[in-house]
Design a protein around this nucleic acid. Structure first.
Lengths: 242, 242
DNA sequence: GAGTGGTCTAGACCACCAG
DNA sequence: TGGTGGTCTAGACCACTCC
């Protein structure tokens, strides 16, 4: 029983260390997206722990949405989540279960003074600078939502719309390029009427009803990453919560 | 190794049988609400399984929200969930984390022809009869939501507003009196404008914006139980999703 | 039939809480 | 200090998938 890669006798439980190890291998590109991991027994041998410990680690990563399991086949690395989030839209036709995810278009990226509402969650001071990423969401060519994401400039010094697009979204970019796996901490939903600015962007009437969604995301160490505000026209589409 | 209460060599995994056993003991009133269960080791001895198997069963019941665990203290039976659901409301004051659950008032209970939208989920035919339970929800005396719950009459032959009130809500009633633990299968959220009928009930203006919530609930065997429609005025309160 | 995930055991030790 | 939940092991067997 020799310590090979994991530091036993640490405050962190062994299975957490196994999780960290697997995550870092994913980040390094050693375990590839949509590819199978080594079997539970092989991982156990590799890391010098029991299969049960590997199993517990994999179970948590499956619950986080990072891995998928198929009995008799293997355990696979999921692609990074999209910026839309985990609640798909459901076209409310007669019991059609057509669930779709809208397409993102990044409108702009810039440094702005952070909105007051976001300061507390991101641990920033009032009127400090932060990245603002504005996106438009389309379902079948129709604009259905606008989106303002805010991130601390200290956390991310360099950023451009191009690299985010190339990665396929902010969350994908953070996972691929900054080894930051993202998790939603909380979402808050309000009804509202559109202000002029959003009505123009959404090609809708002022005073139309919409859903205001505030999303707060963090990394797997529960450190705040992003505060996002979305205005969604879900008259004809349902937000599906499972 | 004698089979005492569980039937081993069954298609169901042992830990599921342990779950069933614990649930039935809760339903029988043998394990009391807010009281501690026997320790994992005692349960293991009692049911003639290993502590690991008991542990896995308890873990699932904790995830369902039926039990709570406290390290070093014990495992406790939670009170049944309220009809409000698992998403509390958040007063949107300056980062006040005051989360509150509104108070329910049952307005009426009657047999009606079921709305078309609910037939598919409840496996009923069009224009069949179903129970309709109408509730009003108040936050600090202010009316904020109306609620129409539908249940199959075949599933529940006898029902009255009084017994539901006495139990503290429909879900509580189903758990206490019908051994039916309830789980949300899916919720769908739309924005809408108030129709006259709801505007009156909610003491709001016609054409005011509101959130329409469709909730589908099932028992732990994934059989459909209830289809519920809620109209919520969440201008000033957020629905909090964790 | 070989290989994978899924279940189960018996026994050990650790971390936390209460009296 | 004794009892509880939390972690970990080594080894066994089952259930499923694919060749």
């Amino acid at each position: 029983m020799q310590d090979k890669t994991l530091q036993k006798l640490q405050k962190q439980p062994l299975y957490r260390q196994v999780e960290e190890h697997i995550l870092s291998k994913i980040n390094e590109g050693y375990f590839l997206i949509n590819e199978a991991l080594p079997s539970e027994w092989d991982l156990a041998k590799l890391l010098d722990v029991s299969q049960g410990t590997v199993r517990k680690a994999l179970t948590e990563l499956v619950e986080y949405g990072i891995l998928s399991r198929q009995q008799g086949v293997g355990t696979f690395v999921n692609p990074p989540p999209s910026d839309w989030g985990k609640f798909p839209l459901n076209v409310s036709d007669k019991s059609n279960l057509i669930q779709e995810e809208p397409k993102q278009e990044i409108l702009s990226l810039s440094k702005v003074t952070i909105p007051d509402a976001a300061t507390h969650f991101l641990n920033l001071r009032r009127a400090q600078q932060a990245w603002q990423i504005t996106s438009l969401w389309r379902l079948n060519a129709k604009v259905i939502a606008v989106d303002y994401a805010y991130l601390s400039c200290e956390f991310l010094e360099h950023l451009s719309a191009r690299v985010i697009k190339e990665s396929g979204g902010l969350y994908s970019f953070l996972q691929r390029k900054h080894a930051t796996h993202i998790a939603v901490k909380e979402e808050q939903l309000f009804v509202m009427r559109l202000a002029k600015e959003e009505a123009v962007l959404l090609q809708a009437d002022t005073a139309d009803a919409a859903t205001l969604i505030i999303r707060m995301t963090q990394n797997l160490n529960a450190e705040p990453i992003e505060w996002r505000k979305r205005i969604l026209l879900n008259h004809e589409f349902a937000i599906v919560i499972r």
